[in-house]
Amino acid sequence: MRYVDKTVIGLTIAFLVLLAANFFLAEWMRFIGLQSLARGAVALGLLVLWRSGLISFGHALYFGFGAYTAVMLSLAGFSDAFILVFAATLMSGLLAFVIGFLLRRYRAIFFALLNMAFSMILYGVVVKTEALGSTDGFGVGTPTFLGYAPDGEAVQTTLFLFTLVFTYLITVGVHIYMQTTLGYMSMAVRENEIRVEYLGYSAEKVIHVKYVFSGLVAGFGGGIMALAIGHVDPDSMANWTVSGEFVFITILSGTGSVAATYIGALVFELIRTYAFEYAPQMWQFILGGSLLAIIMFLPDGIWSLIGRLRKAKA
């Protein structure tokens, strides 16, 4: 019980509300919800890194790697969402573990850029390899869930349920983790690595652990996204602009709360969807403009709005 606090209760309520809403949501809303959860999970991983003072401009690598893992398994005949998404999560985590040995030595802009370099290697490989679908990508078959094979709208409802349960668990897990010594190490590493070393702990190790975690959840997000959209291609899964969007969501959300990343992802998804729908020639303009507005006027992210509202009331 020592772990249950206001955030956990809030997350649980949100989880239950969404669980119920799943049966009433319009299809397009559920679709936006799914994408928000998937992107929000990636942003959650970036949030964990950001608390250590690091931002990755290349997490499309793990997102894309997860998505492609899921799609390749689906092409190989696997259809169970549990297998596809777990494999996506695991493979991306493994990749992050390996690359982490190099990246944990870097800080600041070098860390951000080196991540981008690695993500562009994946992008380059996918684009140039016919066996990986090249620029066209692949379609993903309809997933099954532990033997249950839904069809029609039930596919999406079940996938939403599936995603919701796991993102809930991951998010509560991250929130609890932030109260632990390892979670607080983020602060220590961000503020003074020299002191961390001279207290007898390896800052690089801390960063590596967090990096692997961010890789795992990005892989999870990628796996979900592949199933939600039913299609993967390099430009929407692995290009550097995708990484930029994740950073966008992270900044939009701020470091205030784990819940904020999903709100940030939802806001992002809404801006993007509506901009794309009503001003297809202007959607990047609108997206970029919103991001600039947030940077200028809401430097601590949307979560800080809640703080401001509270202050205004008091």
Binding site: M282, F285, L287, G288, L292
Partner: peptide, 9 residues
Amino acid sequence: FAMFLVLED
């Protein structure tokens, strides 16, 4: 990056 997106359009 945001400015880049804006200028693209």
